[in-house]
Design a protein around this nucleic acid. Structure first.
Lengths: 158, 158
DNA sequence: CATTATAGTTAGCCGCACCTAACTCTGTCA
DNA sequence: TGACAGAGTTAGGTGCGGCTAACTATAATG
């Protein structure tokens, strides 16, 4: 059985995943990660960040000590990358396949990334790749869909 | 500007949307809707249902009086149908396009349906229709994707 | 080196959404 | 018709994840 070799699940809440992802993103841009940056990035007050950091530290995902900079642990990086990847996969699908504008796609991805498991994400990634690849083989699925969608909208309004 | 004619938003939490959807689904099967049915359907305890019903009643979405059967108001039906439709659109996409099995698709749809707005849902519905239609025009996108996905998986494991 | 602005923390409150325990109502059946 | 099972409610507790107010630590500046 698969369950006999079940991996230790971190079981993060959506909110904690958001904090982890924010730290990951900031770290990729700004050399150091400050509590304040996280708060701004997520639009929450500073005490919320402090509490989240303590919890993430207890779970071994961030290196945290009071008044210090924040860094991700090895497993924190892995976990954050996993979440960020989901975000990216979902957003790409919305943009490249559905033709949603980048801003709306980003927002929707933020809300959706915590709800989809690895299996569906893998298929979604595969599908987006497939669509992009198919475009290079003559039949451009995304382009054809855009036509389809537009004509359907016209039909609706008249 | 669009905002000048902004509609009154009900602004239901994900949880309340779940209650509403459950009532809608039960009503479509069982003549009368009992508090207990809702509790079983959602896997929550009965007091949770009582509280949710009071809130939904205050919002004018259900007709509720203590110890009575539950019915949806007109706007409750509209709102519930909207949520149920989202669920259906998402699930269909997972099943018909991505080839996910029905059970997993249902579960994922439950978690995703509160996160996607009308615009993306509309595009997703359109896309699923497009894929289904394209199958009848010679190039079966879903089928081709399944091949693509399988071969990619083979490549991964060896 | 003292001052002061700013970053970070602590303490404590609130709302949401779940729960259990215990009570009340209702409909059935002997 | 009265007792009882089961449905529904009330009361009150919990955890999460926000918040503000007030305190403390750090770092920059004269």
């Amino acid at each position: 059985m698969k369950d006999t070799v079940k991996k230790k699940r971190n079981n993060l809440s959506a909110s904690l995943e958001d904090y982890l992802e924010a730290i990951f993103n900031i770290a990729g841009e700004s050399e150091v990660v400050r509590s304040k940056d996280i708060a701004e990035c997520l639009g929450v007050a500073k005490p919320s960040v402090t509490r989240a950091l303590k919890i993430l530290a207890k779970k071994g995902l961030v290196n945290y000590q009071p008044y210090g900079y924040v860094t991700l642990t090895k497993s924190g990086i892995a976990e954050a990358a996993r979440v960020a990847k989901k975000h990216e996969v979902i957003k790409s699908f919305f943009v490249d396949v559905l033709g949603v504008d980048a801003r709306a796609a980003h927002d929707a991805a933020c809300r959706t990334e915590h709800a989809l498991g690895a299996a569906i994400i893998s298929r979604l990634l595969g599908f987006t790749d497939f669509v992009n690849k198919a475009g290079r083989n003559g039949y451009d699925i995304a382009k054809e869909f855009r036509k389809f969608h537009k004509s359907r909208h016209r039909g609706k309004n008249r």
